[in-house]
Amino acid sequence: MLEIGGKTFASRLLLGTGKYPDAETQQQAVEASETNILTFSVRRLDVFAKEQTNPLAALDLSRYDLLPNTAGAKTAEEAVRLARLARASGMCDMVKVEVIGCDKTLLPDPIETLRAAEELIKDGFIVLPYTSDDLLLARRLEELGCHAIMPAASPIGSGQGILNPLALSFIIEQMTVPVIVDAGIGSPADAAYAMELGADGVLLNSAVAHATDPVKMAQAMKLAVEAGRLGFEAGRIEKKRYATASSPTTGISRP
């Protein structure tokens, strides 16, 4: 079971709700993923439209723990404000702190992320910061009291998978709070790899939402996360330079 801030979750897959081709596909993909935690964003309502549409209307949000993000924030202050707006919905007390420092790479600003996390922890939030794969930053975030650490595998939405497994494994080994690999996952193999490295969970969105068949991909990701976790718990064999026979090398029958 995944445990974050005193809550337990059967699924180790956290799923984003953005960028699905339509509401029905989104709903079916969420269903197929069997996730317990959905991420979403806070944005202005189009109050000037004739009729407002609720982009999450197809989802029964009461069945999930909600993890709003602070996407759009470039400073700690903006992130804290978005987190508080999300909490004012009365639907969540967790927040994914996301403070972007570079528009091209969408890499997180480490200083602002740290400042936002500190403020939100003081304010009683369950704080899950999206961060780079820097071990020392992860340590600082854990020391502040963050409830999970969410390092990126590669840039958001890039689908490049895990570019630095060594850096991720350093974080995974040294944290006592859960480590959730967030951003950059492209395929089920990437998700399984993250879990095999010992990650406590995987958060992804584009890999499912932009797949040719998002619903099928959601199921694939569910199975990959489960397979990767089982593989990690089972303990893989050491890699060797040369072959080792699987069948007995004695008693070979010859005519």
């Binding site: 960028k19 609720n54 919905s89 958060l203």
Partner: peptide
């Protein structure tokens, strides 16, 4: 503004009001 206070929170000229909601995101 807490939802329970909408009825008794006055809106005045010059107020800056932001109305937000949840949208899909990752």
């Amino acid at each position: 503004i807490d939802r329970s206070r909408y009825m008794d929170t006055n809106v005045q000229s010059g107020d800056v009001v932001e109305i937000v909601h949840f949208v899909g995101g990752g």
